[in-house]
Computed example of a mutant assay.
Amino acid sequence: MDGYRFTSPLFRVEAGEDLATNPGIYGKQLAHWLGERLAREGYDQPVVIAEDWGWCVQCAAQPVPVWVGCANDEDSEEGAAMPDHRRVWRCFAVVEPGLLARLFGGAVVKEQTLRIRTALERVLAGEPLISFVDEA
């Protein structure tokens, strides 16, 4: 899965936020922050929802569904006790074409994939308080 891993003091774990996901899975503040910035990148009213794996920023439904996943990347047993500035976060972009788009909309899928990946990289790289982490 393509994506970005980073640390940042910008995002904190909110008490009880993992009740909406799974124990030890966080990222609510990151997802809301990212949704606001993706709106500035031209995505109209991104919506943040909880998933069992983390937090989803729904960016577009047309012409194909586009979303960004956000979650912490460390062992969930470390949980909320980890200092926020040391927590590793992960974001990844997803374009989910339906059957017709897969069969006939290859150009649209490529265009939307490039658009969300470019926007995500621009937002994350443009924030001085984000430090990217190499894959282990």
Score class of each variant (00 low, 15 high):
residue 52 D to E: 14
residue 110 K to E: 04
residue 43 Y to I: 08
residue 53 W to Y: 12
residue 127 E to V: 08
residue 98 G to N: 15
residue 95 V to N: 01
residue 126 G to L: 09
residue 46 P to D: 06
residue 119 A to V: 08
residue 135 E to H: 03
residue 119 A to S: 12
residue 89 W to F: 04
residue 74 E to F: 10
residue 84 D to H: 13
residue 106 G to C: 01
residue 104 F to W: 14
residue 123 V to S: 07
residue 104 F to Q: 14
residue 92 F to E: 15
residue 104 F to D: 12
residue 54 G to S: 10
residue 39 A to N: 08
residue 58 Q to W: 02
residue 57 V to D: 13
residue 114 L to Y: 05
residue 46 P to W: 05
residue 133 V to G: 11
residue 108 V to D: 01
residue 38 L to F: 01
residue 96 E to M: 13
residue 45 Q to M: 11
residue 79 G to I: 03
residue 40 R to L: 12
residue 80 A to H: 01
residue 79 G to D: 03
residue 98 G to Q: 15
residue 126 G to E: 10
residue 124 L to S: 09
residue 117 R to G: 09
residue 126 G to K: 09
residue 51 E to N: 14
residue 94 V to E: 15
residue 40 R to K: 12
residue 96 E to Q: 15
residue 96 E to I: 09
residue 79 G to H: 01
residue 77 E to Y: 13
residue 74 E to I: 11
residue 124 L to N: 10
residue 65 P to V: 08
residue 40 R to N: 07
residue 67 W to L: 00
residue 134 D to Q: 09
residue 52 D to R: 11
residue 69 G to C: 00
residue 119 A to C: 11
residue 59 C to Q: 03
residue 97 P to A: 10
residue 72 N to T: 09
residue 53 W to E: 13
residue 101 A to R: 05
residue 118 T to Q: 00
residue 55 W to M: 06
residue 56 C to Q: 04
residue 80 A to K: 01
residue 126 G to P: 07
residue 121 E to I: 02
residue 110 K to H: 02
residue 35 G to T: 07
residue 39 A to K: 04
residue 35 G to F: 05
residue 99 L to E: 07
residue 37 R to K: 07
residue 106 G to K: 01
residue 123 V to G: 09
residue 121 E to R: 06
residue 124 L to K: 12
residue 75 D to E: 11
residue 68 V to P: 00
residue 80 A to D: 03
residue 40 R to H: 06
residue 107 A to N: 06
residue 83 P to L: 13
residue 98 G to R: 15
residue 114 L to C: 10
residue 129 L to M: 12
residue 71 A to T: 13
residue 117 R to S: 08
residue 95 V to W: 01
residue 104 F to N: 14
residue 112 Q to R: 11
residue 110 K to A: 07
residue 103 L to D: 09
residue 47 V to R: 13
residue 38 L to H: 00
residue 58 Q to S: 05
residue 105 G to R: 13
residue 58 Q to I: 05
residue 57 V to R: 12
residue 132 F to N: 07
residue 76 S to A: 11
residue 75 D to T: 08
residue 99 L to I: 08
residue 76 S to C: 10
residue 133 V to D: 09
residue 68 V to D: 02
residue 122 R to V: 06
residue 135 E to W: 02
residue 134 D to A: 09
residue 106 G to Y: 00
residue 70 C to E: 09
residue 52 D to F: 08
residue 73 D to Q: 00
residue 126 G to D: 10
residue 90 R to Y: 12
residue 133 V to R: 10
residue 112 Q to Y: 03
residue 51 E to K: 14
residue 101 A to Q: 11
residue 135 E to Y: 02
residue 35 G to S: 12
residue 135 E to I: 03
residue 53 W to F: 13
residue 49 I to H: 02
residue 56 C to P: 00
residue 89 W to S: 04
residue 99 L to V: 07
residue 91 C to I: 02
residue 60 A to V: 06
residue 66 V to Q: 15
residue 39 A to G: 05
residue 96 E to S: 15
residue 124 L to G: 10
residue 118 T to H: 00
residue 88 V to H: 02
residue 124 L to W: 11
residue 120 L to F: 15
residue 128 P to E: 11
residue 86 R to M: 14
residue 88 V to E: 08
residue 51 E to P: 11
residue 41 E to T: 01
residue 115 R to G: 14
residue 89 W to H: 03
residue 41 E to K: 07
residue 48 V to P: 07
residue 70 C to S: 12
